[in-house]
Design a protein around this nucleic acid. Structure first.
Length: 481
RNA sequence: GGGGCGGUAGCUCAGCCGGUCAGAGCAUCGGACUCAUAAUCCGUGGGUCGUGGGUUCAAGUCCCACCCGCCCUACCA
């Protein structure tokens, strides 16, 4: 399975919204790897955007410097967010990217033609609109652009795209997004501008092959990353031979991925992606994420304050498959304390303590009733998780894992090991240790760190008491902003 | 303007083809227990399922209109 995230502009440091996409992609990657499927998880940054140039000018620093710094911040999310991406491409430094973009350009040459164009352009979106203001709410007013550009015959691909999507060869989730794309495609496609003057681009970007006065449209450039990141044999393996190629993205960029990109590939005679998953946006305390949101949306700051698991868990357990989700530190803390501290952490803690106190730490064999607790695990839970993830329902998948925690806690109350003796007690505690081990396994795609900590706490033949895995955040004075 | 999605307990949300669908979690309240991080387990209360019509023996669940929120798309020019 080839999984990609979009590659964001690097005009600023990453915010929580992009962290959501990365974490979702990471869960898919880990889940499928665990099932033994070959996985390639790809992400990166779009360095060649004019927006980056403008941000650098505004900040009074060289473009190269700003781009390098911010790109590093994006790549640096790997540690804080426990990401497992296999490759990180930067469009301005990746060795094969430029050549790849040029190759695709030439392959599509039969569908390119020069045309004078005049329109309203939003630098924030890197896109033309028929009227202002730009729907994404970018501050800068739309600018009137009038110049000679290269155009791509998108109109030729209307029927092909329609069939592709209707036939399911290009699956778009959720359905409402699929319908949206179909409505757009079937309402008639106009050719699009795919280059701009090098002057307007401030000389930043990839020159059009054979026309140095023009720079390749940044979206064309960025979309190509999905294949240019795959060099040599990797291209054959992951773009040609792979049956499942999934693009994850936010709702603002569907058209590029579901229309322009497949059309480009069709024109170039290259294989297409197979699935597109569109997530909605995050708001913070009811407001759109913006610069003024500050630390409240800085994933690294959140991780420093609350921990990787708390941040990942909020993103996975609270964000619905469809619809925007509202983030507040209070919600993150409430969820972490309820699930991580009171649920998971407390369960492991009480089990380890009992084994330590009553059995001198020795792990007994599980009892006959193991199936009651961890049978739920291997069977129902793992099935539900898989089913939910096939539908990109991360929240449902995450919730399913918690059934093990709930079931194990009920089991403790039911058997009351502290009142049992001899073999009965050993059997109960054995069952509980095994349930915790099963929990660690199920947890791995969602919270790799938590999974490792649980596994360490209940692993081996002899358990030792230790400090609680997840102290309550509210007690630690981390009640929120 | 056209199209789509959503409006269900204080909060966040489940409810597929109409008939135990009026639910879950959190919060509240009561009880149990003491292995555990004032945790855990059990139970209670609470909603005219956005509004108004309609179809049906029966409607959150279908149809129509309207109100509110959001998304896509367009435009009188």
């Amino acid at each position: 399975m080839y999984i990609t995230t979009t590659i964001p502009y690097v005009n600023a440091r990453p915010h929580l919204g992009f962290a959501l996409e990365l974490v979702q992609a990471d869960v898919l990657a880990r889940h499928h790897r665990r099932r033994g499927e070959p996985v390639r998880f790809q992400t990166g940054t779009d360095d060649n955007s004019l927006k980056n140039v403008l941000a650098a000018e505004a900040a009074g620093v060289p473009v190269r410097e700003l781009v390098d710094r911010n790109a590093a911040a994006f790549e640096g999310l790997r540690g804080p967010l426990d990401l497992s991406f296999d490759s990180f491409i930067r469009t301005s430094t990746h060795p094969g990217h430029r050549a790849g973009v040029e190759r695709i350009w030439r392959a599509v040459a039969h569908d390119l033609y020069p045309r004078h164009y005049e329109g309203l352009y939003c630098v924030g979106c890197e896109q033309f609109y028929t009227e202002g203001p730009c729907p994404e709410g970018h501050r800068q007013p739309l600018q009137t652009v009038s110049e000679e550009n290269w155009f791509f015959r998108l109109s030729r691909y209307q029927d092909a795209l329609s069939e592709l999507i209707r036939g399911g060869r290009l699956k778009i989730e959720p359905v409402t997004r699929r319908n949206e794309v179909l409505a757009f495609v079937e309402s008639g496609l106009a050719d699009i501008s795919v280059s701009r003057s090098a002057a307007r681009a401030r000389g930043w970007g990839i020159p059009v092959p054979g026309d140095p006065g023009q720079v390749v449209y940044v979206w064309w450039d960025a979309l190509a990353n999905y294949v240019t990141a795959l060099e040599g044999d990797d291209y054959e393996r992951w773009w040609v031979a792979e049956r499942r190629k999934v693009h994850l993205m936010g709702k603002g960029v569907i058209r590029f991925h579901a229309v322009y990109w497949p059309a480009m590939l069709l024109s170039a005679g290259l294989p297409l992606p197979t699935q597109i998953f569109v997530h909605d946006y995050l708001t913070v305390a009811g407001q759109k994420i913006s610069k003024s949101s500050g630390d409240a949306v800085d994933p690294v700051a959140l991780v420093e304050a609350y921990g990787t698991d708390a941040v990942r868990w909020w993103l996975l357990r609270e964000v619905p498959r469809v619809g925007d989700a509202d983030f507040t530190a209070e919600r993150l803390v409430a969820r972490a304390d309820e699930d991580l501290a009171n649920g998971l952490g407390n369960l492991v803690n009480r089990v380890v303590t009992m084994v330590s106190r009553f059995l001198d730490g020795h792990v007994p064999a599980p009892g006959e009733d193991l199936a009651d607790v961890s049978g739920t695990v291997s069977g129902t839970v793992s099935d539900t998780v898989h089913e939910a993830l096939e539908g990109y329902d991360f929240r449902r998948a995450a919730a399913a894992v918690w059934r093990i925690v709930e079931e194990a806690n009920r089991y403790v109350e039911r058997t009351q090991p502290w009142r049992q003796d001899g073999t009965a007690r050993e059997a109960s505690l054995g069952t509980l240790v095994h349930a915790c081990r099963a929990l660690a396994v199920q947890l791995e795609p969602f919270l790799p760190t938590a999974a490792a900590r649980v596994a360490a706490a209940v692993g081996g033949e002899r358990l030792e008491r230790a400090a609680p895995l997840y102290p309550r955040l509210v007690d630690a004075g981390r009640a929120g902003v």
